[in-house]
């Protein structure tokens, strides 16, 4: 029973944090829609900060490589959100190119971890 109560408290805290960033407008509570997309940006920045903590702290090399791979996928999300308020469609082109580069880089790093040559 107490485990379930603690779980509920944990979920409520995380959701409250997200909701505070996304929906609470500090000057006036009614006009949250005006800069909604910059709030989305702050949530993504918080997630990347968690990733960077793992990059700095990770005890072994694979930990850091995993965190960098995840950051590479998240940059595509950054590009997609940047497309909406600015109206510049070429940001999504940057996202596609970044996804390709990140995939190739991760495969190369994984081959390096296995200690093999790249031509396999």
């Amino acid at each position: 029973m107490t485990r379930r109560v603690r779980w509920v408290i944990g979920v409520v805290l995380v959701v409250l944090l997200l909701g505070l960033i996304l929906f609470y407008s500090f000057p006036s509570m009614l006009r949250w829609q005006s800069n909604f997309l910059s709030r989305c940006f702050i949530v993504l920045l918080a997630s990347s900060a968690l990733c960077l903590y793992r990059v700095l702290r990770g005890p072994t090399a694979p930990d850091r490589i995993v965190a960098i791979d995840i950051l590479g996928i998240m940059v595509v999300g950054f590009c997609a959100i940047l497309t909406l308020p600015t109206g510049r469609d070429w940001y999504i082109d940057i996202g596609i190119a970044w996804a390709l580069q990140s995939f190739i880089g991760t495969i190369a790093l994984a081959k390096y971890l296995e200690g093999r040559d790249f031509d396999e």
Partner: peptide
């Protein structure tokens, strides 16, 4: 996204 990075 946020939950995934929390898991990380």
């Amino acid at each position: 996204d946020f939950f995934g990075c929390l898991g990380l």
